[in-house]
Design a protein around this nucleic acid. Structure first.
Lengths: 239, 239
DNA sequence: CTCTGTGAAGTCATTCACAGCG
DNA sequence: CGCTGTGAATGACTTCACAGAG
């Protein structure tokens, strides 16, 4: 394992590889070549080999990679072998939806606490799991008591920086932000923003220019057409 | 307006500039230089000038850009001057949260229909606006009747490709996908995926390596420290 | 022979630096 | 002067292409 800097593009792809390897392992596939893996998502095989090479030599020449082994390596690289405890700040529509979201579990994340500044909401229990809503002002205490590693910011843009500041004061080092603002964080705190406004407006740009051939998802015409045909046959009674 | 290909990185930034210009306009600011704009989000001023130059010469040398004028230009470039009608496929936690999401409105998007394959849900009305849930098999008809431009896929990963195929059959050309899978789309259909799993796992990677200095948000130490101080003073009764 | 790991080449994106307009 | 618009330089990421392991 060399200790150079790994770009976010690489870690994002590792996550994609892992997802695929989990499926392959479930399907009982034992080995896979970088080329076969690359074919799954229109990627270059050298890219995959380079991404993995940052962390060691996992492959066997002439064979490829052992699925189960590589799966475990990437799981460890991404830190998904140890459980993470999540706190969600903001119990609105989004915060509530995220509290119920199952996708966290597969990645070894568990939502253990919710925070809101609305007196009405504090003390309530939310969702299937009945997670309790704490007062934001008690954040530092709850973060310590519950061992929270990761915060999710699901408050209005107006108060997102304030929420982040509280989260940072409480000692949380990793934050997933859904508010459509650029937040200022300490250098030792990792903030990742999911900005729906940017995604939507960027879509709108392409919608306004139907002549532009889609840049994302190139080379994916052939496999689709087949699937589409099959699906369309399943639709009965629609013109 | 030159007709070269505009990268998604550029359209994403345009969306960020627009957000900032809207705030400036509200604050009564009349003109702004690329440098002042760049300072707002740790960006290079040449980057901003280049981004804008793709679409025309909007600036005035020695002065900068007129806020209101540039705001209108970018709004038009992103196609946000004409209203967009959105259909959401999948009325689970996420679909419901999105149906109630206010952020759409600011970008001139309106959610006009929901779709689900669950008989229990079809016919129900969801959220404040009481948007009706249609059977997915009626999608083509509803898309035509309601003039839907944009689809949001909020179904489980397992059935996301099927949902996309139905959406494409119905003639929708722009899709925002929340399912954690790589979807295959026709070349004339723009799909933008928001993958929470990737975001989370990528965060996990940095969490597993506290020694790594955060790569995103560089150069933003000084302004934060002040704000943090102010905020922390607001927190009474917390250690 | 096949498929990895990797330097070298290529492509795309950002930043520099400055001519030239207002 | 100050600030835009832009070629030229740099840097980041991807792909090529091949030596060498199994």
């Amino acid at each position: 394992m060399k200790s150079e800097k790994i770009s976010e593009l690489t870690t994002n792809r590792l996550s994609v590889y892992l997802r695929c390897l989990n499926l392959l392992a479930d399907a009982g596939v034992k080995t896979i070549s970088s080329q076969a893996l690359a074919d799954q998502f229109n990627l270059n095989s050298a890219q995959i080999r380079k991404d993995l090479a940052h962390f060691g030599e996992f492959g066997v020449r002439g064979v490829g990679y052992f699925v189960e082994e590589l799966r475990q390596h990437i799981t460890k690289i991404l830190g998904l072998d140890s459980a993470r405890r999540v706190g969600i700040v903001g119990v609105g529509n989004l915060g509530t939806a995220l509290a119920n979201y199952n996708g966290f579990t597969a990645s070894n994340f568990t939502v253990v606490a919710l925070f809101d500044n609305d007196r009405e909401k504090v003390g309530c229990r939310v969702g299937r799991a009945g997670i309790v809503v704490h007062d934001v002002r008690k954040m530092a205490r709850v973060v310590r008591a519950e061992g929270i590693d990761v915060a999710v910011i699901a408050v209005p843009a107006r108060v997102a920086q304030r929420a982040l500041n509280q989260v940072m004061s409480a000692g949380v080092k990793a934050v997933l932000n859904f508010a459509p603002v650029r937040l200022h964080a300490r250098l030792d705190v990792k903030v990742k923003t999911v900005d729906l406004t940017i995604s939507l407006e960027s879509l709108s740009y392409y919608l306004a220019r139907p002549q532009i051939t889609c840049v994302t998802n190139p080379r994916s015409i052939l496999p689709y057409e087949e699937i589409a045909q099959r699906e369309e046959n399943e639709l009965k009674g629609e013109a």
